[in-house]
Nucleic acid binder design. Structure first.
Lengths: 144, 144
DNA sequence: CTAGGTGCAAAAGGTTTGCGGTTAA
DNA sequence: TTAACCGCAAACCTTTTGCACCTAG
């Protein structure tokens, strides 16, 4: 298990560095994530935080999560909140998503090598994997 | 560019193998995907298909996409249609998603090795990548 | 004849936004 | 004091569902 968790001082510093305040709500939302480590959804975070802070609202949970993500304290697991995209290329390949223009491009993968190199804990049965690279496409990268 | 595209006979066979009929709407939705290859959303597919079939509806587009995906002719690029999940582990790691119980687990990655092994076409600037493994977690796998 | 496909409209789920009131630097 | 934060509610976007009609096997 990889160690996670930050002191209030650390949270304060990280949030402040990104222009956010350190508030009890943000401490609570962060604690919910650290205590369970089961990748909850925003609604699950809301339910758990509500047990300690009965007046917290969904809007505040989203606000806190957003501040934590932008401060580098929390990450999104399912990125691409937008609509699902479709692809007729059934060959083994990954995708490159341009963070600037939103374009999606196919990327070749070395055949059948990846799964072998990553240590999946025993007991897990892997059927497939998806890789998404993020960055800038050639057109956007050339525009500075 | 990887070759994609299937004849009507091939589409018919693939759909039939999964218990679906081969219809003009499904042919059209598939053609939209093959012709543009830019990973459109369902709404973009709808708009493009509508130019040729003005009476097609969103429900039919979703129906056709679903049939094509289930027949192995098209794949989803953004999986996990559900809610975004959050993770306080900022170390470099991937995720394992159990297709049965929906649980999400952290998976370690070999440090900084992956990006080097995959051939990203020149001009793309990669900032980060996300890997999601799919299959069955130990608990679900042991239940048959 | 019957299961499956289609269009329409309404509903459902997840997320964002607008607004008035509150709090902390 | 003033920018940031909060709760509430409404709006928004994407996807699913219910229903009536139609069509292919």
């Amino acid at each position: 298990m990889i160690s996670v968790g930050n002191s209030s001082d650390q949270l304060n510093e990280r949030l402040a560095n990104s222009g956010f305040r350190f508030t009890p709500h943000r401490r609570q939302v962060y604690d919910v994530l650290v205590q369970h480590r089961d990748h909850p959804t925003a609604e699950e975070v809301f339910i758990r935080a509500k047990k300690v802070m009965p007046d917290i609202s969904m809007a505040t949970v989203y606000n806190c999560l957003d501040a934590l993500v932008k401060s580098g304290l929390v990450r999104l697991v399912n990125l691409d909140r937008g609509a699902t995209r479709f692809c007729p290329n059934m060959a083994d390949h990954g995708h490159f998503v341009c963070d600037r223009c939103g374009g999606v491009f196919d990327v070749g993968l070395p055949p059948a090598s990846l799964g072998m190199q990553i240590e999946i804990p025993s007991g897990f049965k892997v059927n497939r994997y998806d890789i998404a690279f993020h960055g800038q496409c050639p057109s956007c990268a050339s525009q500075g």
